[in-house]
Amino acid sequence: MKKSYKRSRKITNGIIYIILTVMAIFWLSPIVWLLIRSFQGEKGAWITTLLPKQWTLSNYTRLFTQTDMFNYPLWFLNTFKIAVFTCIISTLLILMVSYCYSRLRFKSRKAFMNLGLVLGMFPGFMTMIAIYHILKAFGLYQSHISLILVYSSGACLAYFIPKGFFDMLPRSMDEASIIDGATRSQVFWKIIIPMSKPIVVYTALTSFLAPWLDFIFASIIMKDNYDKYTMAVGLFKMLERENLYEYFTRFCAGAVLVSIPITILFICFQGYYVEGVAGGSTKG
């Protein structure tokens, strides 16, 4: 009896291993394809053979040497700069807003929350054109500050998951310290934040990544100013019809290089990410 149980468990585990392997192959193959293409010697997006006939490293080196048109290293720096500032500002804002909704009770709190929920649901594209002209009226036209501002302002509506996380923290602690005479600001900075490492890391990670991934808004703001581009816009430009033949393999190389730091970040902070999002999304 016990033996057959063990055997059936072995069989199920075996099946699971097979399924996982097959899935892993499916999931990884596009990425392997990207890697192969980044070493392809022939130009163009379309080749008649499965594997390239010539292999080369020049796609990578040219990203850093041929910079007069597409300045990859500069884009990298731009994006990094924007990402760092966005990360700091929007993490602060999100945590402030979430704490406020989770712990503070004030008039029209519910109204504010519902309004935030509703505002987040308008499709953003129409507003982008208006945002562009507002930024222009403020004199922030084609600048990195404008991107930081807009990314951070969008973040103010993303209080949902952090608020859920804060809701789960025991209230007894901060109530006790308020009775002891601590201000609410002290409670936030000295008690809540130190207890919320997973959600802090989660928000920081997602807001750090946003500038690396957004291509549509950045391209509307930056237009033809290539030197101000972020990574995503620049890479996207490489795939435009007239650049495709010349730049496709370099696009692949560039994409591989961008993915490396993001992958490392993700793998390092995976645990926090899971804890943060799982904690936050379970409580509405």
């Binding site: 402030m96 709190r109 308008f122 969008g154």
Partner: peptide, 29 residues
């Protein structure tokens, strides 16, 4: 502003950003 009105401190900047970059564009749209 640090204590019983702390919500004003916390929400003022986000609200300002929201008005500029979400509310006005939305009304326009």
């Amino acid at each position: 502003l640090k204590d019983e009105n702390y919500h004003i401190t916390l929400l003022s900047i986000p609200t300002l950003l929201l008005i500029c970059f979400t509310v006005i564009p939305l009304i326009f749209m």
